[in-house]
Structures are given as structure tokens and as C-alpha cells.
């Protein structure tokens, strides 16, 4: 994507995002030929999420990246995604057993009766491999949908719980969990990109505030304590952007995890720096800052959370070290 193209695409996205209701943005983009654009230039997604974040618009468009990156045999089979509960390693939300799949997850939008939902289950035991199920609310009456009471008060998140019987769904066995990992990687990359946009949006609000708010006869943005907080915030945003660039380039699970974990931590820190420098005004309902925090914390909880992924990277590091040590000593023994 060259710079001119990127600039004009950003302008278009900004216009669509600012002129449309949140639940209409996807439709407006479709009318402009979004699906053709992303089939040729998948990186357009990175700009879409960034711009959505900068405007703090709560949409369900993360689904779009997940669905567009589904490979065989799932490509084109689904309309929306039911995401796992975040604490997946402690409490698998959707378990597969002989009768069917127990579902405990979220969707970003209330699905219609005939929308095809993609539901993935964790591996339940050695005997029952993980599975992906595709079904609709009409076919699976055992699914219960209710609004989720998320912090993201402008979002339309719903909680989906219940059970899908094998006879009510098309079930694809996901022996090694690659299908599940693919879905998770796409979702995490999209969420990270939106969080990076949120972080830039927060910074923009704070910069505007400190440049105009005057105390002691000078703009508060001329005080070193304020300037340095915002410089730190900007640096965290730069770190997030750099990791995201890698994540879009490689498409790997690790790069998406790194980007989302860093984005989560960065968003928290940037949020607290910027809340502080915006003073009491930043804590009013009228000021937009809280919208950026609400959406960010919700994305982090739903797709991360950053703290959990961070712990996972620490555990990985120890595990890899242990593996390579035992490999080294095995080599030493064999020679």
C-alpha cells in the first residue's frame, strides 16, 4: 500500500465512520466495494480498525477479519463468530462432548435467527477432540441469547450460552486446534489494531486539551510534567504500532498475541497518563475519554486479556528454555 493510497483510504474510512451509525458502517463500506478492496488489499483492514479506534466507534466489524481469513473448510460458511470466554485456559467456554457442544461465549452483535454462527470448542479431554460447529439460532433452540452488560456501553455485545446438539449443527473436528487458533489469531490482530487506534484517539484528546487549557497564564501543555507524560504515552503507542505492523506482515499467532498484549498494556498506561492531564474535564460524561477507555477495556477482556497473554509468554520462555536444555543434554549424551 503506497502512501497516497493509504491517505485516500483513510480519508474515505474517516468519512464513512463519522457519517454513519455504528451498526451501519459495515453496510456503507460494502456499498463502496469493501469486499473487493480487501480481497486485493487485505491490509485495508488494518486501517479500518485503526480508524474505528481513533473514533471510538463500537462495531462488530472484528468479525469481518475473522471471517475473511477463515481457510478451508470454513471459508464462506459463516456470518458471525461466537468468541470464547476470555479465561479460556481455566474455563473452556464451549466444551465438546458426546452429546454436543456446551457454549459459553460472546458475540459482538445480536445474531438474526438464520445467521450462521461459528462456535469453537476447546479440547475437552483426550477422548473428545476440539471441534468447530456452525449453526443458527433457529436450528439450535438450546442456545440462550441475552444482552451482555459490558463496560462498552455503546456496543451491542451479547452473551450466548447453552448447548448445541451435534444433530443441530455442522461439526468439524479440529484435531490440533488449528482452526480455533486461526480464529483467535485473526480476532486478536483485529482487536489489537482497534486498541492501537483507541490509544491514538486518547492521545489526540489529551494533546488538544493541554494545548488549549490555560493555567498560571500558560497552556498546561508547556509544563514539563505534562509534556513528559504525553511523550511516554506517545512512545507506548509507537511500540504498539511497530508490533502491529509485524503482526499484519507475518500473520502469525505469536505476532498477534504480542501485538494484543502490548496494545492492552499500552492502552491502560496511555489512558492513565491522559486522564491525569485532562483533569476533571476528562472525567465528565460529556468528554469523550471514557468512551475510549470503555471500549478498550472491553476489547482487552474479550480477546486477551493482556495480563494473561503476558503470563503465557513468560511460561513459554521457561518451557522453551527447558526444552532446549534437555535437547542439549540429550545431544551431549548421544555423542
Amino acid at each position: 500500500m503506497d502512501n497516497d493510497f493509504e491517505r485516500s483510504l483513510r480519508d474515505t474510512l474517516r468519512a464513512v465512520i463519522s457519517e454513519s451509525a455504528s451498526d451501519r458502517i459495515g453496510k456503507e463500506l460494502d456499498d463502496l466495494g469493501w469486499s473487493e478492496l480487501v480481497s486485493e488489499t487485505p491490509l485495508a483492514f488494518s486501517l479500518l480498525y485503526d480508524e474505528l479506534g481513533r473514533a471510538a466507534r463500537s462495531t462488530a466489524l472484528i468479525d469481518q477479519l475473522v471471517l475473511s481469513e477463515l481457510g478451508s473448510p470454513l471459508a464462506g460458511c459463516c456470518d458471525a463468530v461466537v468468541y470464547q470466554a476470555p479465561a479460556q485456559d481455566l474455563r473452556p467456554p464451549a466444551q465438546c462432548n458426546v452429546d454436543g457442544i456446551i457454549v459459553d461465549g460472546w458475540a459482538m452483535n445480536p445474531p438474526d435467527m438464520d445467521e450462521r454462527l461459528l462456535i469453537w470448542s476447546a479440547k475437552h479431554s483426550e477422548q473428545s477432540p476440539a471441534a468447530i460447529a456452525i449453526t443458527t439460532l433457529r436450528s439450535a433452540p438450546g442456545l440462550d441469547i441475552r444482552p451482555a452488560n459490558t463496560l462498552d456501553s455503546e456496543g451491542s455485545w451479547v452473551r450466548i450460552t447453552g448447548r448445541v446438539l451435534h444433530s443441530e449443527a455442522e461439526t468439524i473436528t479440529d484435531f490440533h486446534g488449528q482452526l480455533r487458533d486461526g480464529v483467535r489469531t485473526s480476532a486478536r490482530r483485529a482487536a489489537a489494531a482497534e486498541m492501537a487506534g483507541l490509544a491514538h484517539g486518547i492521545l489526540g484528546l489529551a494533546i488538544e486539551h493541554v494545548a488549549t487549557r490555560t493555567q498560571f497564564g500558560r497552556p498546561i501543555g508547556s509544563f514539563q510534567a505534562v509534556r513528559h507524560r504525553l511523550a511516554d504515552a506517545r512512545t507506548l503507542a509507537a511500540g504498539t504500532d511497530a508490533l502491529l505492523e509485524d503482526a499484519w506482515d507475518t500473520g502469525s499467532a505469536e505476532s498477534a498475541d504480542l501485538a494484543l498484549a502490548y496494545a492492552g498494556h499500552a492502552h491502560r498506561l496511555i489512558g492513565s497518563h491522559c486522564l491525569q492531564v485532562c483533569g476533571a474535564m476528562g472525567l465528565t460524561w460529556e468528554h469523550d475519554l471514557h468512551r475510549y477507555l470503555r471500549r478498550g477495556y472491553t476489547l482487552d477482556a474479550a480477546f486477551g486479556p493482556a495480563a494473561r497473554i503476558t503470563e503465557y509468554f513468560g511460561a513459554q520462555l521457561i518451557a522453551r528454555t527447558a526444552n532446549s536444555e534437555s535437547r542439549h543434554s540429550a545431544e551431549a549424551r548421544s555423542t
Partner: peptide, 22 residues
């Protein structure tokens, strides 16, 4: 390999990753 250790090590992994990417 205590619990707190994993989080500290993971945080260092993230800090290095950002430096590397940048």
C-alpha cells in the same frame, strides 16, 4: 518458575519485542 515470575518474564518479552519491532 513461580507465578509472579511468569508475568515478570512475559513483561520483559513484550518490552524487547516492541524494541525489536521499532
Amino acid at each position: 518458575g513461580g507465578d509472579g515470575h511468569r508475568e515478570r518474564l512475559g513483561a520483559a518479552v513484550l518490552a524487547i519485542a516492541a524494541l525489536r519491532a521499532r
